[in-house]
Computed example of a mutant assay.
Amino acid sequence: MEKWELAQVNIARLIEPLESDRIADFVANLGPVNAEADQAPGFIWRLQTEDGDATSISAFEWDVHDTAGVIVNLSKWESIEALKEFMYSGKHVEMMKRRFEWFHKVAEATTALWWVPAGHIPTTDEAEQKVQHLREHGPTPEAFTLRKVFNSTGQQL
């Protein structure tokens, strides 16, 4: 029986460049939030450079529109429950409450979840396809949200 892991991507359109004073508090908290993620039960992997930086990775440039750019968070988790536990606790939830200080409100889907075979490392191209699929088709077993979840066999939970 094949083992599956949960991939998740979320993107955000910046109000100002990462170097601006307005975004400084967000940037200052990236390290602590990422450290919490790295230690969270059920965490497997996250996209980052060799220096541990995820903000310098170019992706989703087609989604920039009239903003200062798009930042990407791409990670893998053992389960939906593990991802939720991290998302809604600690520094991460504090930062989520303040997200509109730094990012534009967006009507389209900016977060997608999907199942990948254990050991598979999702790419930014794959993540872009999942967000586009979700925007075009809504939640399906191929790309879904925390509000409409599917298990690894495609059944809605």
Rank of each mutant, 00 (worst) to 15 (best):
E2I: 13
E2L: 11
K3L: 12
W4V: 01
E5A: 05
Q8M: 03
L14P: 03
I15W: 11
E16T: 05
E19Y: 09
E19L: 11
E19T: 15
S20L: 12
D21P: 15
D21R: 13
D21Y: 08
I23R: 05
A24Q: 12
A24Y: 02
A24T: 03
D25S: 14
D25Y: 15
F26I: 11
F26D: 02
V27Y: 06
N29L: 12
N29P: 06
L30V: 15
G31T: 11
V33N: 01
A35K: 11
A37I: 00
A37T: 02
P41H: 10
P41T: 05
G42C: 07
R46W: 03
L47V: 02
L47W: 03
Q48L: 08
Q48I: 01
T49S: 14
D53L: 06
A54V: 02
A54S: 14
A54D: 12
S56V: 13
S56H: 07
S58Y: 10
S58L: 15
A59N: 04
E61Y: 02
V64P: 07
D66R: 14
T67E: 01
G69I: 07
V72Q: 01
N73P: 05
K76I: 09
S79C: 09
I80S: 05
A82P: 06
L83N: 03
L83I: 05
K84G: 05
M87K: 13
M87E: 13
K91F: 03
K91Q: 11
K91Y: 08
E94I: 04
E94P: 06
E94T: 12
E94Y: 04
M96F: 03
F100I: 04
E101K: 15
W102C: 03
W102Q: 00
W102R: 00
F103Y: 02
H104N: 04
A109G: 10
T110W: 01
T110N: 01
T110G: 08
L113N: 04
W115R: 09
V116Y: 03
V116E: 14
I121S: 09
I121M: 11
T123V: 09
E126D: 13
A127D: 09
E128Q: 13
E128T: 04
Q129Y: 10
K130N: 06
K130E: 07
Q132C: 10
L134Q: 03
E136A: 15
E136L: 14
P139T: 08
A143R: 00
L146M: 14
R147Y: 13
V149H: 05
N151K: 07
N151F: 08
N151W: 07
N151E: 11
S152D: 15
S152R: 09
L157S: 07
L157T: 10
